[in-house]
């Protein structure tokens, strides 16, 4: 099993931390993991992306040109990464702010209205956990149990009181994913 993921959106949407949680969850499941961020001036208010690889084998390249899954959270990332999903792969996106929805027919396309759900839940900070829940619903590469262990590892102990809220957001994300046909 090897899952190669790109998560891309605006800086501040929790793109990097979502990647980190997947990576930590992978470790909890005894997988090899790699987390490779974009870094530099593009992160200041611009787009941010991270490549996450989870595998039961040694990971070769941290730099990829094609992905099993693209999680796309803004239009510039859609423009860039729709074409980089492997045929048969998964493209998951939040329709908020997407002006040109994906058009490819050789991949599975899903959407999750995480921006709206997070607003309704009254906490925009759990946006990325809703997206994560949606992703795990279609690509259950790591178990929820290990995600919760990974989450506990990747957020500071002083915020551990928020773990139940995050778990709820992950579940809600899973329940609200919509396949786009």
């Amino acid at each position: 099993m090897t899952e190669e993921i790109i998560i891309a959106g605006f800086g501040g949407q929790g793109v990097l931390s979502m990647g980190k949680i997947i990576a930590y969850s992978g470790i909890m499941q005894d997988y090899e993991v790699c987390w490779m961020p974009s870094y530099g001036p593009e992160m200041r208010g611009g787009t941010a992306n991270v490549t996450v690889i989870v595998s039961d084998k040694a990971i070769s390249s941290p730099i990829l040109h094609q992905f099993d899954t693209a999680i796309v959270l803004n239009q510039p990332s859609m423009d860039k990464f729709e074409a980089q999903v492997k045929p048969g792969g998964v493209l998951l996106y939040d329709p908020n702010g997407i002006t040109k929805p994906p058009t490819r027919k050789d991949i599975k396309v899903y959407k999750i209205d995480a921006t709206e759900i997070a607003a309704k839940m009254g906490n925009v900070k759990i946006f990325n956990m809703i997206v994560l829940g949606a992703y795990l619903k279609v690509r259950p590469v790591v178990s929820l149990e290990n995600v919760m262990k990974g989450l506990a590892k990747s957020i500071p102990a002083r915020h551990h009181n928020l773990l139940p809220l995050n778990e709820e957001a992950i579940k809600i994300g899973g329940d609200n994913i919509i396949e786009v046909k």
Binding site: A23, E32, V33, W35, M36, Y39, I59, P62, I63
Partner: peptide, 10 residues
């Protein structure tokens, strides 16, 4: 290099 410095692995 910057890639190995910035990336996270186990």
């Amino acid at each position: 290099d910057g890639a190995i410095g910035q990336m996270m692995e186990k």
